[in-house]
Simulated scan of single mutants.
Amino acid sequence: MQEEFEMSMMGELTYILGLQVKQTTDGIFIHQSKYCNDLLKRFKMTECKDAATSMAINCYLDLDEAGKKCRSKNVSRFQSAPKESHLTTVKRILKYLKGTKNLGLWYPNGSNLFLNGYSDSDFGGCKLDRKSTSGTCHLLGSSLIS
């Protein structure tokens, strides 16, 4: 690659594209604790309590037309008319991030390389437009790759 691109060796990789990288002899650990800390600081939630889950079990992100309007415009899906219920949900997600900011992806050295794929969907789960939500994940050995 050095013949094709201008490159310089600046030491071991520790940070790339918002991801922190910790390399050891046992493997590689990738996490975003710095990003989470910056996000909590930005929204003045560094001292908040942790949340065990990212959303409450009884939480449904509906249009909430009867709800009280929210002044904040940082609620992406409902940006045109966010309500306080949407802001409460975003705050819950930030509390969850505070409690899980030290979690990450572990890629161990020398593990067996077998490929597993998983998928899930909820078939018409959105109460507003009856659209489905689906997702997949793929593991190479015990490491998430997609």
Rank of each mutant, 00 (worst) to 15 (best):
D64T: 11
L105E: 08
C126G: 09
P108S: 04
M1V: 10
C126L: 09
Q79S: 08
K95V: 03
L63C: 07
S85M: 06
S111M: 15
G141P: 04
R130M: 04
S111G: 15
L115V: 14
D38R: 01
T14Y: 13
N112G: 05
L19M: 15
Y118S: 07
T53M: 00
K83C: 03
I30M: 00
D38C: 03
L144M: 13
D50F: 10
N109F: 13
G135N: 01
E47M: 09
T46P: 03
C36T: 01
H31T: 14
D120H: 10
C137Y: 09
N116P: 00
C137I: 05
S132D: 07
A56C: 14
S80H: 14
T133S: 13
Y35E: 01
S111W: 14
N74T: 15
T24I: 09
D38W: 01
D50M: 07
R42Q: 13
M1H: 10
G104C: 10
T100C: 07
I16R: 02
C126N: 15
K98E: 06
K73F: 00
L115M: 07
N102T: 15
T89N: 08
L87T: 05
M7H: 11
L17T: 11
G141R: 04
R130Q: 05
L61Q: 01
E47K: 08
G104H: 08
S76H: 14
V75S: 04
K68E: 05
Y35Q: 05
K91D: 02
F78R: 11
Y15A: 05
S76A: 14
H138N: 06
Q79E: 09
D122L: 11
D62W: 04
E12C: 11
D38L: 08
Y107R: 04
L94M: 10
T46Q: 07
K68T: 11
K73Q: 02
Y107N: 05
L113P: 00
K49W: 01
E84L: 08
Q23M: 14
E65G: 02
D62M: 03
L94Q: 01
D50P: 07
N102L: 08
S8P: 02
R77P: 01
E84M: 01
S85D: 00
D120R: 09
S54A: 15
C70S: 10
K44P: 00
M45P: 03
M45G: 06
L105H: 13
S33Q: 10
S76F: 14
L140S: 04
C59A: 14
K49Q: 14
L128Y: 13
K98I: 06
S33G: 06
K68Q: 11
T100S: 13
G125F: 12
Y96S: 01
Q32E: 07
S54G: 02
A81Q: 12
E12V: 11
K22P: 00
S134M: 09
H138P: 03
H31C: 15
T89V: 15
K101M: 03
M45D: 03
L113A: 13
L144E: 09
K49V: 13
L113Y: 12
G27I: 02
H31M: 12
T24K: 08
E84D: 01
K98T: 07
L139Q: 11
L40M: 08
I30R: 02
L39M: 15
G110Q: 09
C70N: 00
C70G: 07
R71M: 10
D26L: 02
